[in-house]
Amino acid sequence: MSEPESIVTIRHLSKIYAQGDIQVTALDDISLVIAAGEFLTLMGPSGSGKSTLLHIIAGIDRPTSGECLVQGIDVTKLNESQLADWRNQNVGFVFQTFNLIPVLTAFENVELPLLLTRLGHAQRRKLVNTALDIVGLADRSHHLPKQLSGGQEQRVAIARALVTDPKLVVADEPTGNLDSHSAQEVLGILQSLSRQVGKTVIMVTHDPKAAAFGSRSIHLEKGELTN
């Protein structure tokens, strides 16, 4: 049986913040390989560096040193514009606070990343409806975020993360603002994305119950991997 193909390869990654004269080490010489199709959960106490690691993998933060290869591309070497394009094509984001645009409907929110592609209106409509269907919100497509429950908002955010069909989905405490029922629904969707569609999901969480949905869990403490 062959080894699963790696999608993320991290080598000697460090991130040091300067706070005045004091230097704070957020990540300290991290090396890690994440396989394609894996549902990896990053755990650890506040300030352990798990969100920083997630942000660097997703190309929205830069390390102080080290490499972060995603599908063979070292994202630490890309400039701002290249990173913007890369994120659009390769990564889906799910945030703790949903981060939907309040003045746009669920449909328009999900459509946003597709506006940066060359797809026509009909193709975009089809993909958006499919994504909303996957998260079970096809009948809520014309609702504004304020007309949706927290769980529904997060499912719209997942649809937005999926609509460009990225290989990698990153989620930063996606259940942090949800009740337990909604949290189960969201985690179930993320799990099925990994198991049934083959997406690589990386999720930051404090909650061991949430981490149990993942296929692998790693722990960080003071910027270092502890397992």
Binding site: I60, A84, Q89, F95, T97, N99, L112, L116, R160
Partner: peptide
């Protein structure tokens, strides 16, 4: 501000 950050994350340029 956070909304603008989200747009940037989604790939919209400055």
């Amino acid at each position: 501000t956070r909304e603008i950050g989200t747009l940037r994350v989604l790939g919209f340029r400055r």
